Simulated assay, not measured.
Amino acid sequence: MSSENTIAVDLTLVDEGSRKIDTAPDGVRIGAVSLGMWQEDVISAPSDMSDDWDTYLIRINYELVLEPGLPPLSWFEVRADFASNTPEPAFIVDALPHATSAPRVPTSYALNRYLALVPTDFDSSAAAHLPGTTDIINVFGIGRGAVRWQHSSPAGGVLQGARSAWAVLAVPKGRMKQTVEFSVRYAVQSDKAVDYRPTQQPVSFTLTLSAPAQSRGAVEPPNSADPAEPPPGSPPYVFISYAHDDARRKTNALRFGELLRRCGIDAHLDQWDCDQRGDWSLWAIRHTREADFVIVLASPMCKAVGNGEVDHKTHRGLQTELGQLRELLHADSEKWVPKVLPVVLPGERVEDLPLFLRPYTMDHYLVDEFTREEIEDLLPVLTRRPRRPRPPLGPGA
């Protein structure tokens, strides 16, 4: 255990011009995000993971407290950086909570053999627990040295109170002291604060890690595959291509990506990669060529773009993605037909898939609800594990 309960990041509004809030010269303190006790447990890394790393399951507790009478926050974001000012940075293998666009019920998670946190119904196998929440949550930084959780609320300002997060942390082998920089970003939900700039001062502290040889609290990932795990090797890498027709379709694409990740599928979506400026056409090309599978989501605009029924200035990003898929399918159909999967989400129609995907003469996948049961036809394709294994031949008559 690591006691970091005396650490807090103050949230302060600094005057940017004409004053509309009476403040002290150095700004007005509107609240703080305080750290509670952090828990760290040694993880027994899978045998096929490089022995250059020690792995830990870290529980991160933080609490948002606002001063009485001041406006709420539209959103706030906490960031835990395990890589700053370190020549050999640590990195985040997985992190909870995963992104969610709807209220979440209390959920328990187990570690699979790839050190991914997947939902479980069995308390005895659970390594992490998250309470229910009404927050909309975005998470950034998995696979990197710093992880961020952004909280917002469909009902307006985010609620005060304590929250928990979990991170699977890999550090260079033998490291017993890990530097962490903790910071906060936020926005105030008030017109009165328009002339004030939200500020905060990041804090750094040292997290003491247990020796990997100790068995105390060791978390043992399963050695054999279970239904929540992908087959031997890396988790299936899936790129989701879709049209930004409207807010509902963007939300449905996000919910579908979240569902795949909960089922152990390494799904990638543009809404998770918007934390820095970049070339989106190169981003799409890289994901398409490197992914094990490319999923194309049905919609009227997807059909129109795929069938060449719009001008070249409409939905240029989707034109790049679908144009590349047409080229790849034409150049090597034997390789790419099994990799490109048409999917029809709730409220969509099979008729709204582009013709070059051949949705009627080949398979398409219907998803009527965002549940694991509704993607039972799709998961065997992504994991290359049939739902009903072929029985062995008998001796015959």
Rank of each mutant, 00 (worst) to 15 (best):
D94G: 07
A90L: 06
P87R: 03
A95T: 08
F82T: 08
I92K: 13
R113S: 13
N61V: 14
E63S: 13
R113H: 08
I58S: 12
I58F: 05
L70E: 14
V65W: 10
V65F: 04
L73T: 08
D52K: 03
T107V: 04
T55F: 00
Y56P: 05
A83I: 03
P106R: 06
W53P: 03
L70W: 03
R113L: 01
T55C: 06
M49S: 02
S84Q: 14
A90R: 05
L115K: 15
P106V: 14
P103Y: 12
D48F: 02
Y62H: 13
D94Y: 02
S74T: 12
R104L: 13
S50F: 01
Y109N: 06
S84M: 07
N61E: 15
Y114I: 05
L64M: 15
P68N: 11
P72E: 08
L66F: 03
E67Q: 14
R59F: 00
D51C: 00
L115N: 10
D52V: 00
Y109Q: 11
L96V: 03
Y114A: 11
P106E: 09
P97H: 12
A90G: 13
E63M: 07
A95P: 03
V93I: 14
V118Y: 09
W53L: 09
V118T: 11
A99T: 13
P72Q: 07
T100K: 07
P68D: 11
A80I: 10
F91H: 11
E67K: 10
V105A: 04
R113E: 10
N112D: 15
I60A: 04
V65G: 01
E63D: 08
D81Y: 04
P72D: 11
L96W: 05
W75R: 13
P106H: 05
P103E: 10
P106D: 12
I60E: 10
Y109E: 13
E77H: 07
T86N: 11
N112S: 03
Y62A: 12
N112W: 00
P68L: 07
V93A: 01
D94M: 09
L96K: 04
V105Y: 00
D52N: 06
N85M: 09
L64H: 06
R79S: 12
S101M: 05
L117W: 09
D54F: 01
I60F: 02
P87S: 12
R79A: 05
D94I: 11
I92N: 04
E63G: 04
T86M: 06
N85A: 08
F82I: 10
L66A: 07
E67W: 01
D54S: 07
Y62P: 08
D81N: 15
E77M: 15
I92T: 11
L66T: 10
A99K: 01
P71E: 07
L73E: 05
E77K: 15
N85S: 14
W75T: 11
V65T: 13
A83T: 04
P72S: 05
N112R: 15
I92V: 15
D54A: 07
M49L: 12
N61Q: 09
D48G: 01
E67F: 00
R59T: 05
P97R: 12
A95Q: 01
W53A: 04
E77D: 06
S84L: 12
L111D: 08
N112V: 04
L73R: 06
W53Q: 00
I92F: 03
S101T: 07
D48T: 10
L57H: 10
A83L: 02
T86E: 12
V118A: 03
Y109T: 07
F82A: 11
A102W: 00
S74F: 06
S84Y: 08
D81E: 06
T107H: 01
L73P: 04
